[in-house]
Design a binder for these strands. Structure first.
Length: 116
DNA sequence: CGTTTGACGGTCC
DNA sequence: CGGACCGCCAAAC
């Protein structure tokens, strides 16, 4: 009974959130990777969906999601543009020039980790 | 209902 | 290496 009509649309948003929440601690992923994994959404949809991630419940670690270059492209959407970097550094991720250091090593590909 | 806009990605040059 | 362009597709206007 508590669920009420929380389902709303149950669209690709939930899929994106679900994958994003599966990103392990100290790791980062990219919008395209998630989109590629779902194959039902495009990278733009992922990024756009992240906008709603702040209202999603449970919250989504959007700070762990960066673009394919490892750049903190979405830092401006956080409370503060520096918050995203601090969050990542808080997880042991080094940020250099608004980019993830060793991004290639920290890159978490759902299609590779969640591949059956 | 047509146009614009994206937290993107890949290709082209 | 970087700027330009197209494609995705849904929401906002």
């Amino acid at each position: 009974m508590q669920d009420k009509n929380k389902n709303e649309q149950k669209s690709f948003f939930e899929d994106v959130f679900a994958v994003a929440r599966q990103i392990p601690y100290g790791r980062v992923s990219s919008y395209g990777a998630i989109a590629n994994y779902l194959e039902t959404v495009t990278a733009r949809m992922v990024g756009w969906a992240m906008n709603k991630s702040f209202t999603a419940d449970p919250p989504v670690p959007a700070h762990r999601v960066v673009n394919r270059k490892g750049e903190l492209s979405g830092r401006h959407h956080f409370s503060t543009p520096s918050m995203m970097q601090e969050l990542l550094e808080n997880e042991g991720i080094i940020i250099e020039q608004d980019k993830v250091k060793d991004f290639k090593k920290l890159y978490w590909n759902p299609s590779d980790e969640l591949a059956d």
